[in-house]
């Protein structure tokens, strides 16, 4: 699947990447994230997973396969 949103860094725990969506909500990202895309609009490819983590956790996470600028 593919999602579009803004890549945000959340300063919680040891730090966490989330995808902020236009309609609201932050989906935690699990996987390698290119830090230089921080605060940029990006396209994330991956799959939804019920992950546990230490940052934002109420929304389902995205297991990242690829991230590129939108």
């Amino acid at each position: 699947m593919e999602w579009i949103g803004t890549l945000r860094y959340v300063d919680l725990g040891a730090g966490q990447w989330v995808l902020e969506q236009e309609e609201g909500g932050e989906m935690p990202l699990v996987g390698a994230v290119p830090a230089h895309l921080r605060d940029h609009e990006v396209v994330v490819q991956g799959r939804r997973v019920d992950a546990l983590g230490f940052g934002r956790s109420m929304q389902r996470s995205i297991e990242v396969r690829d991230i590129r600028p939108a």
Partner: peptide
């Protein structure tokens, strides 16, 4: 139980 990215499963 959590990976280097900070995620894990039930």
């Amino acid at each position: 139980v959590l990976s280097r990215f900070g995620g894990g499963t039930s």
